[in-house]
């Protein structure tokens, strides 16, 4: 990786000052599992790296009667081990356990998970965010077995690989963001992720100098679950994930949310499919129908049609898992 100047400030004020005062490219370092790899691969080349590890206010989990507030620098292990999180949000715990590596869970942070760079192998091999070569998409012409089956009409064919995002969206979480002007603003989880239409565009709604500080999740009792399909049983990237959440109103489902992961450049919300379940009991037939509905608009590439089947099954199984 290229040489850079480094700072590990103790406050957000300092961090944001360091982020906005840089003359060259700057990177925010959280857990490091993604950023250091990206820097070694030469796809991120900051002249300044600002670590958030010493900012205590970004860590920890606060539980109140109506919400759970998670610091962005909370590690994935800490999140999964928290009793209230385990009780209220099994969809998040499943996603963290699914990572399969204690080391990653101990290092990786909630904020870092949400702000990862795509793992698209064309991107990681230096062909840019869209995997272009001489004006043509290598993803379309080449091996796209792990690429997007939704939202791939534009140049972005990669998939969002956040473990937590689908669950957080299903749980109606809010992302709390602090601007360089020290003002806080809230972004609904579903609005945080963006599909870029040009390589220089951001993958998130964060503006320059903004830092994701907390995630706030309603503490309302919902039934929720995540189902992930991986090739291996240990550390591996999922092929497809589905996170679902709904309110159980005496045996019928209300406010159903179904969100797919690893299928599109952003977490993929399938509201239309979710609506088919409103007011119904979640059983095998209803869950399967929802799965079928969820993939109705899928547009697989040349080699990833199997992910449509996986998405269909993941939705069904996540719903059945949530229903218990």
């Amino acid at each position: 990786m290229n040489a850079f100047e480094y700072a590990q400030p103790a406050t957000l004020d300092e961090a944001q000052a360091l982020l906005t005062s840089a003359s060259g490219p700057v990177a925010v370092l959280a857990g490091g599992t993604d950023l250091l790899t990206a820097m070694k691969q030469g796809i991120v080349n900051p002249a300044r790296v600002v670590s958030l590890k010493s900012i205590e206010e970004l860590r920890g989990i606060e539980v109140s009667s109506d919400a759970v507030r998670i610091g962005a620098m909370t590690t994935l292990s800490e999140l999964a081990a928290h009793p209230d999180v385990a009780r209220l949000y099994p969809c998040l715990v499943t996603a963290i356990k699914g990572i399969g590596s204690p080391q990653i869970a101990n290092m990786g942070t909630v904020g870092g998970d949400l702000c990862q760079h795509p793992r698209c192998w064309y991107y990681r091999n230096g062909f840019g965010l869209f995997g272009m070569n001489n004006g043509a998409s290598l993803v379309l012409e080449g091996d796209n077995r792990y690429h997007a089956i939704f939202g791939n009409d534009g140049p972005a064919k990669f998939v969002n690989v956040s473990s937590l995002a689908p669950g957080l969206i299903a749980l109606d979480a809010t992302f709390n963001v602090r601007g360089a002007d020290k003002q806080m603003r809230d972004i609904p989880a579903a609005d945080f992720f963006k599909t870029p239409s040009a390589p220089e565009e951001s993958l998130t709604s964060l503006a320059a100098g903004e830092v994701l500080t907390h995630i706030t999740i309603p503490a309302a009792q919902t039934r929720n679950a995540t189902y992930e399909v991986r090739e291996r049983h240990g550390l591996d990237w999922p092929l497809v994930t589905a996170s679902v959440a709904y309110t159980d109103a005496g045996g019928s489902a209300q406010n159903v949310r179904v969100v797919l992961g690893h299928v599109a450049p952003t977490p993929w919300v399938v509201d239309a499919a979710a609506k088919t379940l409103e007011g119904k009991a979640i059983d095998e037939a209803a869950a399967a129908a929802c799965g079928t509905s969820a993939v109705a608009d899928a547009k697989p590439l040349s080699m990833n049609g199997y992910k449509v089947q996986l998405a269909k099954v993941a939705v069904k199984r996540a719903l059945l898992a949530a229903a218990g």
């Binding site: 599992t33 250091l36 080391q103 101990n106 290092m107």
Partner: peptide
Amino acid sequence: DRGTCGACTVLLDNKPIYSCSML
């Protein structure tokens, strides 16, 4: 050297981590 294989595992405050993925 990319935080996958675990051959670089050390304990940081008693927790296993990948030392290749930490400065």
